[in-house]
């Protein structure tokens, strides 16, 4: 039972970050492999403004999210758009975002040093009892936020005009441009929102493990796995994928030892890819007329 609850909570962390992958994939059919470094970027920006005592914690979080959003939009414009010009089979963006990941990692390490730094912003201390399991309040906050962010995104995509545009771009970017909407601009906005979410994840996560340049790396593999299991084209996907991946890996490490936890999670990815390549909630890519 403990492992089940802890798995769900851990799945929430992965789900929140997985949402950054799903968002950019839905609108631009690209993934930003530097997401892990945006996690660290957010954490360090918030750390840098932590001393501004006139700003409440929510404000500090917002600064971190905004900075990551601007860098994210620029990354799309200058490192993704130029490397996807040759049609669907042009995946040079994959290399350019991996390169960005290395560059950011080195820049952050040069400025901040490699060792973890304590982050107190938006930090809840202590634990609560959930169905008999002791869960840290901070982790619970992240998991709850994953649900809140997901619901907000789903509602926005169904009910707002920005959501309508996002769905239109995901189905046919060229025709969207014939409706007076620039798909490139939509992509930049999506990257901004997605990297903002990564920064938010980073700040909240840093409160538990400390801010360090490599803090995003362990989250990256798990959150890509979660996004793939749930389906990269579904906003609900990360929650389902996160729950399955989190519970499976926690229960497995509890029963068979920690080494097997992550292995089980990745086996889940393989099983899903074989059985349902589009992910559990994903839509098969439409064939154009």
């Amino acid at each position: 039972m403990d492992a089940l609850v802890l798995g769900l909570v851990l799945g929430g962390l992965y789900a929140l970050l997985a949402q950054s992958f799903v968002l950019t994939f839905i609108t631009t059919k690209t993934l930003n492999f530097a997401v892990g470094e945006f996690v660290a970027l957010g954490a360090f920006v918030v750390l840098a403004v932590a001393g501004w005592s006139w700003l409440p914690d929510v404000g500090k979080l917002a600064v971190g999210v905004l900075v990551a959003a601007v860098v994210g939009a620029a990354a799309y414009r200058f490192l993704v758009v130029p490397f996807m010009t040759e049609g669907e089979h042009d995946v040079r963006w994959l290399l350019s975002t991996v390169a960005l990941s290395f560059v950011m990692l080195n820049l952050i390490t040069n400025v901040e040093g490699p060792s973890p730094q304590r982050s107190e912003t938006a930090r809840l201390s202590g634990a609560v009892d959930v169905l008999g399991a002791g869960v840290s309040k901070q982790q619970l906050l992240i998991a709850v936020l994953a649900v809140v962010v997901t619901v907000l995104l789903v509602v926005a995509s169904k009910k707002t005009s920005a959501g309508l545009v996002m769905r239109a771009v995901s189905q046919d970017p060229e025709t969207t441009s014939l409706m007076g909407v620039s798909p490139r601009l939509v992509g930049m906005v999506t990257y901004a929102v997605a990297m903002g979410i990564a920064a938010l994840t980073g700040t909240l996560y840093a409160a538990t493990v400390g801010a360090s340049p490599v803090m995003g790396a362990p989250l990256l593999v798990a959150s890509i796995a979660v996004a793939v299991v749930g389906g990269l084209s579904s906003l609900w996907g990360p929650l389902l994928g996160g729950a399955l991946y989190g519970v499976l890996s926690e229960v497995t490490s509890y029963e068979f030892g920690a080494i097997w936890g992550e292995t089980a999670g990745l086996l889940l990815v393989i099983v899903v890819l074989v059985w349902r390549p589009q992910g559990l909630l994903g839509r098969r890519t439409e064939v154009k007329l």
């Binding site: 239109a168 409706m179 439409e286």
Partner: peptide, 19 residues
């Protein structure tokens, strides 16, 4: 024609209004 296949008729026309 290139309608947005998974949008409704109304949403397709709404997209036209964007221009």
């Amino acid at each position: 024609r290139r309608l947005f296949p998974q949008l409704t008729v109304g949403e397709n026309i709404e997209m036209g209004r964007r221009a």
